[in-house]
Design a protein around this nucleic acid. Structure first.
Length: 383
DNA sequence: CGAACCGGGTTCTGCCATCAGA
DNA sequence: TCTGATGGCAGAACCCGGTTCG
């Protein structure tokens, strides 16, 4: 991971950006004008009330290998524009190392990308390059999610966002991850991001926390997706956990700052539904309210399993001779997928491993560790 | 030394609704 | 009335290994 000296690089960003802007404006305007004369497509005649589609644009997109049907379906308005920059965009991305196939895919999925000017593209790219050390990293994000890069035309907002998110003093590693894995965060308006951070701080204060800034930082560090989730969802999930678990404020705060942060971004209805089915299943298995709550507090990720997955895992363990009590004590054995749990149970049986006596912790180990253990057990059996 | 604890890494877009401005 | 910009939504687990404990 080229985690880039993001912090360092971005420190001087503001000053250099202002300077760059005034300098670049002159040179880029020239380039842009020249390029646009040569490369922009233009429809015949002025804009008509019927908004006819731009023929030369269609031709260009076809040549580029763009999936016109998809593009048309997604943003039909683009096709009626008099001026578009598809050739400029293609050239620009090509210079950054994107293949023709990737460019076609980007335009197919987010046609509005072809409305951006060269000047705009260069500014935006530069802002991203202050976080990433190579063009290739940015291209791979663009390929994955063209919308994240292109949806907003507001470079100033992007710059402000970077500055704001930097001000949260996230580690450079986390910042890099945020921009790589949740690039949408950076096309939110700064106001929205601020509002989301404030929400996290408020939740902390409501629960009697003393350091709201640190709390927000911890939550974002553990779950980089919280900033692209609605306030409604985050608040609802906090409320759901609070209502169900009936924890003290400080215990809930601990939970959220710990593993609980990972389930904050779940769809709130999904979380509620899983909570309900989990509760029902555990009641059926003879657990009481207290045990169920303890298990969730210990291992909140259990709420990330849909009913099918949850039941399959529990049944697999129970059929393998493990008691529900053992699972309550060590819920992390549910971490691995059913297939692995089943395979391990079978392997353990062949070497005569006594799960009742030795405990079930062995199921919660990496493949490497499990294999090592199995080898030892087999060797021991041969003696 | 092995067991147990603990936390970290991966992963998240593509579509829809709404609103403001042209 | 059309378009672009923006916010929000659904969807849904798994694996690894460092460190501490006994």
């Amino acid at each position: 991971m080229a985690a880039v000296p993001a912090v360092r690089a971005l420190h001087g960003l503001h000053q250099s950006f202002v300077l760059q802007q005034s300098f670049r404006l002159v040179s880029l305007q020239l380039t842009s004008t020249c390029l646009s004369r040569r490369l922009c497509s233009a429809a015949n005649g002025p804009k008509l009330p019927q908004n006819p589609e731009n023929e030369s644009l269609l031709e260009n997109l076809n040549l580029m290998g763009v999936d016109i049907r998809t593009a048309h379906q997604r943003q039909p308005g683009v096709f009626r524009r008099l001026f578009t920059n598809e050739k400029v965009l293609a050239q620009f991305l090509k210079e950054k190392g994107a293949s023709c196939k990737v460019i076609a895919s980007i335009v197919s999925r987010f046609p509005r990308s072809i409305t951006r000017s060269l000047d705009h593209l260069e500014q935006r790219w530069q802002l991203w390059r202050n976080v990433f050390s190579t063009d290739a990293e940015i291209i791979s994000i663009l390929e994955r999610s063209p919308e994240s890069f292109f949806r907003s035309s507001d470079n100033e907002n992007l710059q402000k966002n970077i500055a704001f998110l930097m001000s949260l003093s996230l580690s450079s590693k986390v910042f890099h991850r945020l921009m790589t894995k949740a690039p949408r965060t950076f096309s939110n308006s700064v106001a929205l991001n601020k509002q989301k951070v404030e929400l996290l701080e408020d939740i902390c204060l409501q629960l009697g926390g003393k350091n709201p800034q640190q709390f927000a930082k911890t939550i974002i560090t553990k779950n980089i997706y919280v900033l692209i989730m609605s306030d409604k969802r985050i608040q609802s999930n906090v409320d759901t956990l609070k209502d169900f678990l009936k924890l003290s404020d400080s215990a809930l705060l601990d939970l959220l700052e710990g593993r609980g942060a990972y389930i904050l971004d779940l769809s709130s209805e999904y979380l509620k539904r899983n909570l309900k089915t989990f509760e029902q299943k555990m009641f059926l298995l003879g657990c009481d309210d207290d045990e169920i709550k303890k298990m969730i507090t210990k291992y909140p990720e259990v709420l990330d399993f849909g009913p099918t997955t949850l039941n399959a895992k529990l049944d697999c363990l129970l059929n393998g001779g493990i008691t529900i009590k053992q699972i309550l004590e060590k819920p992390k054995v549910l971490d691995f997928r059913v297939q692995i749990i089943a395979e391990r149970l079978e392997q353990l049986q062949t070497v005569g491993y006594d799960l009742k006596q030795n405990g079930i912790h062995i199921l919660d180990s990496s493949q490497k560790r499990f294999l090592e253990k199995m080898n030892k057990l087999s060797a021991f059996n041969r003696k």
